[in-house]
């Protein structure tokens, strides 16, 4: 793979990069979603946290996935002019929705973006810096953590595919031998 082949680009303002919801959604949706009937009573919490499935301005509703894997459920809440932070409910991004019951309906009161927490000793890299590293052919292993289909459809130059479940299973076997070499992970970002 030649990094040199990226010969031009649009110099655009630095992207706002504060969320990393895409992978969570990708992996969760690969699992059969609706399962737990036994969960019914337990979902009465008044905060939903997870990736936004969709928002309809016409119906004034937001759907959000709560829970992981087989226990994942899509919950629907309404919103109105009083709801704070409706702009943070964007399809594919993780959000925290506080809601309250009003009659038969659940209404969102405050919506906040859920920020990704980086593990200790791990730093974030922005798009322009990554581009420059690839352009300069800095030795690194770039890992696409999305499901294989997404990798196959289109991945970054030089990237290898290691979906999250594979890394969990095979661990260091699928990673480079040299543990001091730069290792960068990415996934589906925010769409």
């Amino acid at each position: 793979m030649k990094v040199k082949s990226i010969i031009k680009f649009i110099p655009v303002a630095v992207m706002l990069a504060f969320l990393a919801a895409g992978c969570a959604r990708d992996t969760d949706s690969s699992v059969q979603a609706p399962a737990a009937k036994t969960m019914e009573k337990k979902t009465e919490a008044d905060v939903y946290t997870g990736p936004i499935v969709g928002k309809s301005n016409k119906a004034k509703t937001i759907s959000i996935t709560v829970g992981k894997g087989a226990e994942a459920q899509t919950m629907m809440v309404k919103f109105d002019d009083q709801t704070e932070g409706v702009e943070f409910a964007k399809k594919g991004e993780a959000a925290i929705i506080n809601w309250e019951q009003r009659g038969d309906d659940k209404f969102a009161t405050v919506i906040k973006p859920k920020l990704a927490k980086l593990p200790e000793g791990v730093t974030e890299i922005k798009v322009d810096e990554l581009y420059q590293l690839l352009e300069d052919q800095v030795p690194m292993t770039l890992v696409d953590a999305r499901p294989a289909l997404r990798y196959n459809q289109g991945h970054l130059p030089t990237a290898i595919s290691i979906p999250v479940p594979l890394l969990k299973e095979k661990k260091a076997e699928v990673l480079p031998e040299d543990k001091d070499k730069l290792l960068i992970f990415y996934c589906g970002g925010y769409t």
Partner: peptide
Amino acid sequence: MSTSNAGLAKKLGYTNVRVFLAGEP
């Protein structure tokens, strides 16, 4: 998530781990 992958790599002894949070999009 790429962050959980990064955490795992860190635990496995990788010293130079970064995450491109904004991702492919």
